[in-house]
């Protein structure tokens, strides 16, 4: 198991390095000079050159890449030109919103999606199944920005139960911060829950046809006992894979949802930094997003090895 962990961690590190290189060099070939952007169109060539030197932009790309990597390790990512604040601080600040949002949505979609999928599989072919899967189909088809606006109209504007947008830092008012995240989390989670419900149902229906379920029933278990005790865990394996992949979409979804709810999160930071051509912020924020996804994938792999003894066998001597 330890060996498996080390192997996977090496994989994580390598993925991050490749992602960092891709982000850095892709942004580097984009047109636009950060120094000119900071100083404005009328800046003199001398001051431009001076700033470029100060920012290290006159050095070769590979050196700047190395500097950025060291910065990532030490937490010194430089200053944001558009926000006039240290980039590391900006990102950490925004994470306190985006992390709870993404993980909250992940947990909520699991809590909704899996039980519904199991229920549908147990009632396969019956009205409950058809109804749920119909709803799931709609859930998948609805774009989440539209769903987010619908939530705002109903729960914030009409019913006035929850704030329509904005965010109060946790430190100032935890309950207000929590309330501010409820609608965005739901907006983000429901389409994912719909996908999970479908995947869970299909997977469990597949497993229910397998021989070991028949064996379990031959032991004297009822159909639903056999499904719960032997089916669900086996059916979870493909679902876990999908959950890992979905997290990337959740992260992408935060950018949209944060904009709809006017939340100062990592997604919005990236979005505004792109509009402001603040490439230093963009590359670091992007890498943090990639890092989140990679870490989740890593956790999924670990979970896989925990759930499925066949993998452990292959991975450990």
């Amino acid at each position: 198991m330890v060996g498996y962990l080390i192997q996977r961690l090496l994989g994580v590190a390598l993925t991050l390095l490749v992602a960092a290189a891709l982000i850095f060099f892709l942004l580097d070939v984009l047109p636009g000079d950060p120094a000119r952007f900071m100083l404005g169109i009328n800046a003199s060539d001398e001051s431009l050159a001076a700033l470029r030197q100060q920012l290290g932009l006159d050095q070769p790309a590979i050196i700047r890449f190395g500097q950025w990597l060291t910065g990532l390790m030490t937490g010194d990512l430089g200053m944001s030109a558009s926000q006039r604040a240290p980039i590391a601080e900006l990102i950490l600040d925004r994470m306190q919103l985006s992390l709870p949002l993404a993980f909250g949505a992940l947990i909520l979609s699991t809590l909704i999606g899996l039980p519904l999928g199991i229920f549908a599989a147990q009632h396969q072919g019956k009205p409950g199944d058809a109804g749920l899967m119909g709803l799931a189909q709609i859930g998948i088809a609805i774009p989440n920005f539209w769903f987010a606006m619908l939530l705002v109209v109903v729960f914030a504007v009409t019913l006035k139960w929850l704030p329509p947008g904005g965010f109060v830092p946790w430190a100032e008012n935890p309950s207000a911060a929590f309330r501010a995240l409820i609608l965005p989390t739901i907006a983000l989670a429901l389409p994912q829950a719909a996908i999970l419900a479908r995947v869970m149902r299909t997977s469990l229906v597949d497993v229910a046809r397998q021989d070991f379920i028949r064996t379990a029933r031959a032991k004297g278990l009822s159909k639903s006992q056999a499904l719960w005790r032997h089916g669900v865990r086996n059916a979870l394996l493909p679902v876990l894979t999908i959950m890992g992949l979905q997290f990337a979409f959740l992260i992408a979804g935060t950018i949209i949802v944060e904009n709809v709810f006017y939340l100062p999160g990592l997604g919005r930071l990236t979005f505004t930094a792109i509009s402001a051509r603040d490439l230093f912020v963009v590359r670091s924020a992007l890498l943090v997003l990639v890092g989140l996804v990679v870490i989740i994938m890593f956790l999924v792999d670990l979970l896989y090895a925990l759930v499925d003894p066949r993998l452990k066998k292959r991975a450990t001597p």
């Binding site: 021989d211 070991f212 028949r214 064996t215 379990a216 032997h230 865990r233 086996n234 003894p309």
Partner: peptide, 16 residues
């Protein structure tokens, strides 16, 4: 009544 099935590869729960 106890029963044994044909398929040795698939008749047991792989995760248990």
């Amino acid at each position: 009544i106890g029963m044994v099935f044909q398929e040795p590869m698939t008749a047991l729960n792989p995760l248990m």
